[in-house]
Design a protein around this nucleic acid. Structure first.
Lengths: 130, 130
DNA sequence: TACTTTCGATTACATCTGTAATCTGAATGA
DNA sequence: TCATTCAGATTACAGATGTAATCGAAAGTA
């Protein structure tokens, strides 16, 4: 029966919603106004927009609310790493048949990898071997 | 004036559309029916659906058509590698601040990397150093 | 020639997204 | 107490997307 797991239930988070999540992953809990302070300018949004996104995220089970006087404070319910994981996986799945190496190869070929990236990856590889 | 470049104009390709593109990247030109033969079963689509997607892809400039008797044959106008590039970049941009190393680190941590992947990546790294 | 089949083109329609405006009720200040 | 203000809730609305059904013309078939 439990084909849908509430906690893990990855109700797809849209791009605009994701921008809001980033703010809250960076710092939480925050009020709608706080979130707006961080993103509204940057994305050209108005407060109502932020509120809509927050509500949608709450319905999607991605955020929790806690009352603070007459307003709400929002906090992430899903972890950033979980989100990042699903999204990365989706991409790798969709574009590279689930294999990560081709993605890497692609990034390498298109020079999307900086020297720093490469050094870092080598370090990680070494790390993994231990 | 040429703020919009026809050929490169990356009118966002949706996921369903992408499935159609994959078929045509694999083999082209193909008719709508041919495409359906490949994906309809798998995705539970009917022919009209495929035709809609093909039309949309043509309007988006992602496919070209060539008449073949009373029907059309479709071929990709944009290359798979270009598409894959943009999409990968979008993801890395959105989730990892444009840096590829964190993506790699993430994949590594979540064990999304198979032993084969790792071996392959090491090979690529060695390759790049030459 | 009339009927059927087969295409592409047009239209449909529910969701999801982006982006708000408006409504409602509580809190606040006069 | 009464108007103003500010929060969340409700409603809006266009464009993108998923998924077709239907229409109209061309082609093949009897």
């Amino acid at each position: 029966m439990a084909s849908k797991d509430e906690s893990q239930n990855a109700e797809r988070i849209s791009e605009a919603e994701h921008a809001v999540m980033e703010v809250l992953w960076h710092e939480s809990p925050l009020s709608a106004a706080d979130v707006c302070d961080v993103v509204c300018k940057e994305r050209g949004w108005s407060i109502p927009t932020v509120k809509t996104l927050l509500s949608r995220l709450v319905s999607k089970g991605a955020l929790s609310t806690e009352p603070d006087g007459r307003r709400f404070l929002y906090s992430p319910l899903i972890e950033r790493s979980a989100y990042v994981g699903t999204e990365s996986k989706r991409l790798v799945e969709r574009l590279f048949g689930g294999r990560a190496a081709p993605l890497f190869a692609h990034l390498a070929q298109t020079e999307a990898l900086s020297a720093d990236d490469i050094a870092e990856i080598e370090r990680l590889l070494k790390e993994m071997k231990k």
